[in-house]
Each structure stands twice: as structure tokens, then as C-alpha cells.
Design a protein around this nucleic acid. Structure first.
Lengths: 338, 338
DNA sequence: GTTAGCACTCTCCGGCCGAGAGTGCTGAAA
DNA sequence: TTTCAGCACTCTCGGCCGGAGAGTGCTAAC
């Protein structure tokens, strides 16, 4: 595409994302291309419309980017917007003061992304494909009730109350604990399975069974934490003036099970994924754009972090800020060993 | 107030909560009071309006309850709606399948309340005024890095990474653990403080300091978990058709710090609290009603559970279902020892 | 290739009007 | 004294109309 056409497409996208009003040839002439007459711009606009990058709400309205228009912009025209110092400092402060556990960190990350992008955000907890045990602990609650505490890689704590068939004192459990730790800590989940198969009937086997159950739950990811925040930001946009639009987005965000699948599906292998309007498979997200990246303390432990907003979104700002938060969060989590 | 006036007020509230349309004398005559002419009903309505319990959107519209009207209904006219078996079963299933930790349970409880009341819900984690330690555990991460795990009453796990001034092996830590457990488990937080004051300088004092820090955080409630769900249910109501109304409510719900204060303020001492429209101190909740109750595994550990919806809410249904979930959750949490 | 000029189209907004819903009042009946 | 039929009145809502304004596409000249 010729340079000038690209420049005009870029201008239309920029103008429309800030004003939310269809942009006409006159506005482009006075604000972007003073030495180009509106008539010339008009004919370029007509061609861009023929190419499918622009459309008009009605005959006598200005132009609006189509989904393909945004796509072209994102793929070829967008350059990342630098992040102001104030925003950078805000991100750093929020991440520094975040709780030192995964849950708290994920929530803080979602909150921060929502705040700096002024859109809705989603975040899933970093997770590896196989769980690794760091530490096991057993606490006697009642004579026949044991609280099993598992510390997984990423300082993830899991707990489960186990009703044992035989009574056990705290001393019994403490003895058992050191054996279990020796065998399991630093090992992946299949070690626990192996040991379970080999163990004789009794308390230890019983407990190992529950250890495996917890690991299974984690690995299947059915209990994977997904949070969202910043829906109120969407409501400031004219796209969401009728609340039925908000309703559709909320259906996706509040249905955690669905959201988990969606994120996993979308992120694929790339490190930055932008899905625009009709490219969304889910019907509720028509008219919305989703920007996703990954984050996590190590290469093996990765979660998804994303922004959801109207297709008329400040993509370059969103991407740079999203990535800044993702990098910051990854560093902070690595630092905390979370 | 005469019986008949009460009956008419009750009918107006009932009709308006289901239809969302101002109710006229004709509708009341044909659907509730067949042997009372619409003229008679009309004069009663006029008197109820004089008393401040009803109002009209405009001269030729039907009547709508005022906030005082709802207040009168709630205080004197409402009888709890029985809960259908289907709903009862749903509540039971959701609570049975909830995760066995506080965070998971709180989220599930909020989700269930939102689902069965078809409104937005809020829930705060049950919390006592003083923390009690059930168990302490220390895990060596690096030579000079220790993960401190605290199990509090309610099977609440807290963790913190501690950078120690001197290196310590896991064996050192294990030895220290048993001493700490002997001294602290089953004790309230002031015991930890006492012990900290008496301890000689060294690893133990260092760790005790962090234990106290964690307990402080918990007791000050600054980190108290508050979740919400079901905002999408509100969007089905005509009151929230313009999204600015939703925006106001979301500002309250998504601002966790604010929400915590609000809940604590509202719940006071009573076990059921209903706040209607202008009774709300916060301006964002004008036009909304909040129904709150408490729940928790023991008398000492109580959280707040609530419903937020339009003032035009099915109060009797909301109250009975909210209380059912609160009771169910309390029982389940007691059972799990959470 | 660019541009001024111009006719054309479509939305938006305010005003107008009739239909419909619901009220309050009045006077008669129970 | 209470109830109720009848009736005039008020107000909203939806459709319709027309003018203003914005922006376009086309054409002819530079």
C-alpha cells in the first residue's frame, strides 16, 4: 500500500480511537494533512473503503476503521507508544507492594493492567504443566483428622483436610513428614505416583493418595485461578452505553470456567496476541478486542495476562503498557520466588 | 395502618418488583382485589402516597413504592418466601463441591448467592478479632532464605519469604519449628508478641518478628479478602439500562478497600441488615438496596455476605435465599474446619 | 494527480399530534 | 360513612415532519 494511504489509515485509526466519532475528510485535512485538500483525502478514503479497511456508519458520516483496518494498523503501522515516567513509577510501586503469594500477585497484576490501560483486564496464575513439590507438612487437627499442606513450586500452598482410618498423633505425623519430604521435595508429581504405587497399605499410602489428588487437581488446571478487573473502565466508553454490550462481556469475564479455556486457546505459542472484533470465536466478544501476553517467574511457569476493550482501543499504548506490567510482574515474581 | 392499606401496599410492592412497571388501580383491581372497585383502590393509593409510601413518576402513571414504602414492607409486611427444592439442592451441591480453603469457599459462596438471588453479591472472609496460630512451618529455600508458613485458625494459610541474616539449613529450621510449635500453636497472637520480646537476638527472634508481622496484617484486616460476583445479573434489570448506573455500582464493588469498610460499617451487630436506597450513605448506591447477613464456621469467626440490587428487589426471596446460603456455608465451613 | 465547486444523502433534533393510560373529583347508591 | 360509576383532565410515548448540518461522490478545471 502506498505510504500516503498508510498514513491516512493511521490517522483515521488514531483520530477515531481518541474521539470515538467517525472521522471525515475535513477533520483529517485540518488536523493531520494541512497541505492535502479534503477532496484528495476523500478519494483516498474511498479507496481505503474499497480495500475493506474503512467503513461508514451511513452515507453522510465520516469513516470508521473496520476490523481488517485495525488488523492492518496493528500488523504494519503501529509503533509502540513510550510509557510516561508517572505510569512507569505507578506500575513499579503497585508490583513492589503486592502480596508475596501467587493469588495476591495475580490480583494485583490484573488491577494494575486495568488501571494503566483504562480497559478491563484478565489474568491467570502462572502454571507449569507438571507440578513440583517443594515441601510437605502434616498437622494433626483431630485424632483422625490431618491437615495436609503442600508447598509447590512457585510457593504455591495447597491444603486439604484428610480423614484417616487410623488415629495419629502429631509426633507420628512429624516423623512421617520428614520421610515424605526426603522422598518428594524437589521432585515432580510422577515421583509421588511411583511412591504411592509402591507403598504398603496404611497411613502413608492414604496420605500419598491425597497428595496425588491435589497434584492432579493442579495439573488439570481445573482449579486454575483466573481473575478480572476494571470492567468499570469499559463503561466509560460510548460502545458500552447500552448495558446489553456490557452484559455480553461480563458473561465471558464472570464465567471463570469459560475464561480459562478462552485464555489457553487464544494465547497459543506467541508471546503477544491481538484478537480484533470478528476474529473472536466467541460471539459475546464481537466488537471487542483482546490483547494477550504471557508472564511468570520462570520459562516453565507461565500465566496469561490480557486486556479486553472495544475494538476502538489505543492499541499501541495498550500493548506497551501491558508488556511493561508483564515484564515487571515476571521480575518481581522471580525475585520473590513466587 | 389499616389492614386493607397494608394489603394494597404489599400488592403494589409485589407487582412492581415483578413487572418493573408503575402499577395502576386497574391492574390492582383485576389481579389482586377483584371485589374492590378501581376507584376505591385509587383513593387508598392516594392516601398511601400522602403517607409517603408511594409516589408517581408523573401525573398519569401508576404508583411506585418509595424507599419508605419498601422500608415499611420489609419491616412489617414481608414474610419469608419458601425456597424451592431445586434451589435448595443447588445451594447444597455448590457448597459441597467448594474447595476446602477459605478463599475458595468465599468465592463459591459469593457465586452461589449471586446465582440464587439473581443479583450482585459480595462476601468477605470470616475473620476473628484476634488471630490464633494452629501451626508453624519453616522451609529452607536458599541458605539465607526461609519460607515461613503459618496455619491460622480457620485453616488459613499465610506465607512469607524471610531473608535471614545468618544462613540456616533445613535441619536447623526443623529443630526451630518444633520449638515454635510447642510455644505458639493453639495460642493467640499476643503469645507470639510476648515470646518475641523475651527472645535473645538471633534467627528465632528474627522469625518471630515476621510471624508477628503476618498476624498484624491479618488482625488489622487490611488484607481481608472481599469478593463480588453476579454484576451481570444487574444488567438484566431495566434500572441498569443506562450503563452509568452500572458504573456507579461497579465503582463500589471493584474498589476493594472501600468495600471492606462499607461491609464492616453496615453490618453492625444485627444478623440481618437491609439498607434501602437513600438509607445508603454512599452516593453510588442510591437506587440500590443492600441485604447483608453474617456467616462463618464459629461464633468468633464471622464474615459478611450480602446482596446488592435495585431497590425494586424481591426482598422476601432475597432474604430467605441469602440466609439459606449463609447457614449452609457456615455449616460446611464448620464441617471442614475451614 | 490535485482541487474547488456543487448537488446529494443521511442523521439529528425539535416541534407537533393523537392514542392510551391513569388519575382525581363528583355525585349517587348502599 | 363507605363504595363506586362516570367523566374530564394530565402526562407520556411513539410516529411524523422539516430544517440544519455534516460529509460524501462526482465533475470539470488546473
Amino acid at each position: 500500500m502506498e505510504n500516503r494511504k498508510q498514513a491516512i489509515l493511521r490517522a483515521v485509526v488514531h483520530e477515531f480511537t481518541t474521539s470515538a466519532v467517525p472521522v471525515g475528510s475535513q477533520a483529517l485535512h485540518s488536523r493531520y494533512f494541512v497541505n492535502l485538500s479534503s477532496a484528495t483525502i476523500r478519494s483516498e478514503l474511498a479507496e481505503l473503503a474499497d480495500l475493506g479497511y474503512l467503513t461508514q456508519p451511513h452515507t453522510s458520516a465520516g469513516r470508521v476503521p473496520t476490523d481488517s483496518g485495525y488488523r492492518y494498523f496493528v500488523d504494519f503501522l503501529m509503533d509502540l507508544e513510550p510509557i510516561p515516567d508517572r505510569v512507569r513509577a505507578y506500575i513499579r510501586d503497585e508490583l513492589q507492594s503486592a502480596p508475596a503469594d501467587v493469588e495476591g500477585m495475580v490480583e494485583r497484576v490484573a488491577m494494575t493492567v486495568a488501571a494503566v490501560t483504562q480497559n478491563a483486564s484478565v489474568a491467570s496464575a502462572p502454571q507449569g504443566s507438571q507440578a513440583r513439590i517443594k515441601h510437605v507438612d502434616l498437622v494433626s487437627l483431630e485424632p483422625q483428622e490431618v491437615l495436609l499442606i503442600l508447598l509447590l513450586e512457585g510457593n504455591l500452598l495447597r491444603q486439604q483436610v484428610v480423614n484417616t482410618t487410623e488415629p495419629a498423633t502429631q509426633a507420628d505425623l512429624t516423623a512421617l513428614t520428614s520421610g515424605l519430604n526426603e522422598a518428594l521435595s524437589g521432585r515432580a508429581s510422577d515421583e509421588a505416583r511411583r511412591r504411592y504405587d509402591g507403598a504398603p497399605l496404611g497411613l502413608e499410602k492414604e496420605l500419598l493418595g491425597r497428595v496425588i489428588a491435589v497434584l492432579d487437581l493442579y495439573e488439570k488446571g481445573t482449579e486454575n485461578l483466573v481473575v478480572h478487573d476494571g470492567v468499570r473502565n469499559l463503561l466509560r466508553q460510548p460502545e458500552f452505553a447500552e448495558s446489553s454490550r456490557v452484559h455480553q462481556v461480563l458473561e465471558v469475564l464472570e464465567e471463570t470456567r469459560y475464561l480459562t479455556v478462552l485464555l489457553r486457546q487464544l494465547i497459543g505459542d506467541s508471546d503477544l496476541q491481538i484478537v480484533i472484533g470478528s476474529e473472536n470465536t466467541s460471539s459475546q466478544l464481537q466488537g471487542c478486542a483482546v490483547v494477550l501476553t504471557t508472564y511468570g517467574p520462570t520459562d516453565r511457569l507461565k500465566g496469561v495476562l490480557g486486556v479486553i476493550g472495544p475494538t476502538r482501543m489505543a492499541y499501541s499504548q495498550t500493548v506497551s503498557r501491558l508488556q511493561a506490567v508483564a515484564r515487571g510482574a515476571s521480575d518481581r515474581m522471580a525475585e520473590l520466588g513466587v
